[in-house]
Every structure is written in structure tokens, then in C-alpha cells.
Amino acid sequence: MDARAAVFGPGAEDISRYVDILASRGIDWGLLGPREGDRLWARHVLNSVACADLLPEGASVVDVGSGAGLPGIPLAIHRRDLRVVLLESLLRRARFLEQAVDDLGLQDRVAVVRARAEDHGGRYDAVVSRAVAPLPRLVEWCAPLMARGGRIVALKGASAIAELAEAAPVLRRSGLVARVVERPVPETDEVTWAVEVRRPTG
């Protein structure tokens, strides 16, 4: 079975179109480096959905510092139950995201909001990010966006454990707990890591 169909099922065609958008407009507009063209599928798209099982069924999700739409757009294609906001402060990137969402026909479940995380008043079941900022700063930006019972899922790769240690003082001040989660990257032999942050219950 084709890897796209194996991971994305009925969204296989959509994810293929998204990869084409990244490989053309994404690189042309400077959102991705020219060397990333050959690594889009494994390094960016599959990596983005490795931790999809950490998101609750039917969740509202905000992708902070969405950039080229990673991980928000692959997550929305992979998990059709999710409602996703792509939060991006830079005009050029926000315009890219709006065009991509329109081209992919995702307007019913994916919205683009141009704002900084610290200025955005929304509340979400899950706050996701990938390659945005060091974890201490990211927690300060993202914690106010968590709904009651919500979580932050920060895709960090191999730096996750070290960044979690650096973020310990911020987590204590914010009354949050966190763990590092290891997940296989679908259809590859690789693994990746995320930091999952929650408010303790009870």
C-alpha cells in the first residue's frame, strides 16, 4: 500500500497536493529551505502526525507559529475529527496558509488567524507547535491558550528531554506538569519525541 494511503487514508490525495504546495510555493516564498524539497515527506509531513494520538477525539487545536502549516495541516488531513486554527503572526506566512487551505478545500475545519500567541484570546483542547521556540518560552506563550483540561503538545525531536529540564522553573510557576513522549514516525524506521504539558487534575 502506498505510504500516503497507509497513513492518511481518504486524505491521501490531499496530503499529496499539500506536499506539492510545499515543494513549489513553500520553497519559492522562502518558508522552507531549497534543500528541504527532497525531505518534505518523511522529515516534515510524517513527523508532524507522529503524535496525533495525543490529541483528543473531536478536539479544537491551535497550531502556534504555524509557518508553512506544520504540523497543523497534516494533522487536519490525518484526523478529520479535528478543528484546527493555524496561528501565524507574519503576513507572508499567513497569506501562504490561507492559499493552501483554500487550495486543499479545508475551509470547513481549518482557519488561519494572523496574530501572536500572546495576543490571541482563544482557548483550545490542544495547543501544538513544531520548531517554534525553546520550551520555556513556548510554555509561557501557549499555557494561556489551553482550555480547561487542555494540553500542549510540542514536537521537539531529540532535544525534548533537555528542553523539558530547562522549562522546569516555568512549569512550576505555571502549575503545569509535563512528560516526554516517544513516538514512531509512521512508515519509517525513525522515532521522534514530543513534550506533553497539562494541568494536574485533582
Rank of each mutant, 00 (worst) to 15 (best):
L54Q: 12
L75E: 09
I77H: 14
A76V: 09
L46K: 02
D63G: 06
S16R: 14
A52L: 15
L54K: 05
D38V: 11
I73F: 07
D14F: 01
G37A: 08
L40I: 15
D53R: 13
D20K: 09
E36L: 09
V62P: 14
R43V: 02
A76F: 03
D53A: 07
P71W: 06
E57V: 02
D28M: 03
P71T: 04
D63C: 04
S24I: 00
D14E: 15
R17K: 11
G69D: 12
G67C: 02
D38E: 15
R25M: 11
E13F: 09
A42I: 02
A68P: 02
E57T: 05
G9M: 12
L70A: 05
R25Q: 15
S66H: 08
G26P: 14
S16M: 10
G37E: 10
V49E: 08
G58R: 04
Y18D: 13
V61E: 13
A52W: 10
V19I: 15
I21W: 14
D28W: 01
L46Y: 06
G33E: 11
P56Y: 00
S48E: 06
R35F: 05
G72N: 12
G58P: 05
R39H: 13
D63L: 08
E57H: 04
G30F: 05
D53T: 08
V62Q: 13
I15W: 13
L55G: 02
I21C: 04
E36H: 01
G58I: 05
G26S: 07
C51F: 13
L31T: 03
I73G: 11
I73H: 03
N47Y: 04
S16V: 09
L54V: 02
A12P: 03
E13K: 12
P74M: 07
G58D: 07
A59M: 10
P74L: 08
D20S: 15
G58E: 10
V19P: 01
L32S: 06
D53L: 10
D20N: 11
G67W: 07
P74C: 03
L31A: 04
D63F: 07
P56E: 09
A12T: 01
A68V: 03
G11I: 10
S60V: 06
V64T: 06
E13S: 14
D38F: 00
V45M: 11
S24F: 01
L22R: 10
S48C: 15
H44M: 05
I15F: 12
A59Q: 14
E57D: 12
L70V: 00
L32W: 07
H44R: 05
N47A: 09
L70G: 09
S60D: 14
V45F: 10
A59I: 05
A12G: 10
D38K: 14
Y18I: 06
G72I: 08
L31D: 08
A42E: 15
L31V: 02
N47C: 10
A23L: 10
S48G: 10
L54W: 03
L40E: 12
A59D: 11
C51P: 08
V64N: 13
D20E: 15
A59Y: 06
S48V: 01
V49Y: 06
R43S: 08
V64A: 12
V61Q: 14
D63H: 04
W41A: 06
P71A: 08
L46V: 00
G69C: 05
L75R: 10
D38M: 09
L22I: 06
G33Y: 01
I21Y: 09
R35M: 08
S48L: 01
G58K: 03
D53H: 12
W41Q: 04
A50T: 00
